[in-house]
Write a protein that binds this DNA or RNA. Sequence first.
DNA 1: AGCACGCCGACT
DNA 2: GTCGGCGTGCTC
Length: 699
Amino acid sequence: MESEISPVFVALPIPKQGLLAYMPPQGMDQLEPGMRVLVPVGLRRRMIGVVWDPPEKRDPQDLDIELKEVSSVLDEAPIISREYRRFLQAVSWYYFYPVGMTLEEALPNLLLSSRSSSIEKILNTRKKTRVRFQIPPSAPCRPKSLTQEQISVLSVLKKRISGNLFSPVVLHGVTGSGKTEVYIRAAESALALGKTALILVPEIALASQLVAWFYNAFGDLVGLWHSKITGPQKLKTWQDIRDGKIRIIVGVRSAIFAPLDNIGLIVVDEEHDDSFKQDVRLRYSARDLALLLGKLQNATVVLGSATPSLTTYEKVIKGEYELLTMTRRVHDTPLPKVELIDLRTKRKKKEIPRLPWWMSEALYKAIDETLHSNEQLLLFLNRRGFATFVFCSDCGHAFRCPHCEITLTLHKSFGPKGNKELLVCHSCGFNLPALPVCPNCGGQAISSKGIGTERVLAELVQVFPNIRAERFDRDTMGSKKKLINTLEGFRKGDIDALVGTQMITKGHDFPNLSLVGVIWGDQSLHYPSFNASEKTFQLLTQVAGRAGRRGKRGRVIIQSFCPEHYSIVYACEHDYESFLREERNKRVGHFYPPFGHLINLIFSGKLEEHVKKISFEAQQIAMRILPKIQKRYTKAVEILGPSPGIRPKVKDLFVWNLLLKSQSRKAVRSLAEGLLNKLSTVPKRGVRIEIDCDPTGLG
DNA sequence: AGCACGCCGACT
DNA sequence: GTCGGCGTGCTC
Ligand SMILES: [Zn+2]
Ligand SMILES: [Zn+2]
């Protein structure tokens, strides 16, 4: 066996762990890691992959197989730097996800799709249009002077950025304390040092608005990165970043993969937000990856939030992260007055006027007063549609999704024109026209239960016929234009009230809002997850923080079926510390995060029998190898389940979970690794196995 | 993810 | 007898 010519190792976007080895092409010894190559895969396929750093140890039996030859080399020089490869390698390792597929997740699609060859060619065929980002005209101006708190926070951040060391910082600042301005000026100082900056926010709509502020300050040095930017446009941004033309990126979760070099500052704004966790394929947390990247790049990482997650705050308590606080709102707007209303209270028989059940008398009065004084209000309910449960009152037939088995939600004004009456599955999107006839018995007594934003808006208008109200959710704010227009209209005072979902709570600035009504404050509390209380506290704090205008105290009404729950009580009192104390006490005994580490194995397939069988088999294997693991690690590892998923069926696939938990991350990872190893040899029978490290919404 | 192989029902 | 349906497994 001649082994003078050493093979190259290629990362390919196939669901196989590790790299594939190839012979370099004839007379091509300048092949370096980071260059793209075209290689034969299987019997008749050619794929684009990236030459990777050779593994330290190679499986000896690998050497037996005859290696195929690289078909062609696509780049003259590496397009993936050593630092970036190290980052992706670490991501791949942590999430048990193949390197090649991690690469696919990170790179612009065009770079690995087989049609493309040279980057220049792709970009040259595209007509050049200059990107501009515009701030909506009625948005408040950037402040000329800073508050005392902003000044002191900035001075620390500047020190950390110029220190050239990994510096994790938690910026605990109440809503409206002026964090955005701090981010802009911190980015400025990173730039002044020749470094770059990465700003992450939870939603595309927020990124699109925030980028305009940065654009005004830094011009073409700023780029926008999110999943709706695709094709040549994404590639252009990617290339401009690598060329150093773009040095600040504003984006969402996926922007963590923007190929910035020499990063001085990474901001994760609203770090507690679930949107930073991807829940398909590579299930990464952009917040956790920001910390990893910060470590590799010796950057300052700012985790900003009015309600830092327990996971983040635990690091503050341990002294691993630095804590900076901003307790005062700009213009000294006081925190809103929050009233808690018990929805279980019996209603008066003769209410005048007759109110819908979700509108308590207190809320009614508050809305009335707000409208009378020409002020604005916002109603929050985290559910789209008109009714969540539609059934036939003759035979009891309930309308369910044939693919997910959950009940269909009635939408009375669906579609871009808002003129379609549909039953929609909120899990997979399946829908059918809402006809007034029962498909089971032919009867016409179709009824519905459960509220959504559509119904709240409709009944709000019934009670207040002159109100100018609009809905603000994914259904109505599908396009960027519509969203901007509505926000504009509300800021200008053309709209009195907004009825919205989660969308309404994130970041948007409402300068004249005097009343916030939370329709169902304990809704998120019923989600079967170890962090349901935390999510509830965060959501309520965030939505309440919208209320209040310059110098004038806002008012918040939270309606709830369990107003005595600590997450709701402390949210009303703006008491983060007390909530934290109680929630930590709840979790510490069960070793839930941050006191323990979770890895979830997700089994899914078309035949429930097979899914169930494989997940039980996995549990058996885990039990068998557990003693070996416990010899190496003193901390216990628990195997929980298998059990049906929170959504037991999605798009015709049955889902089961096997949850691994331990106080020691190493121990739980070690068990997961061993288990996956053993599972790789058992026949899958159409069952897919996915790994979710640090799952949210489980337990 | 593709793509091939293979094992069973229905069609020349 | 073969054609093609999808269920299953592999890719250096
Ligand atoms: Zn019926
Ligand atoms: Zn469905």
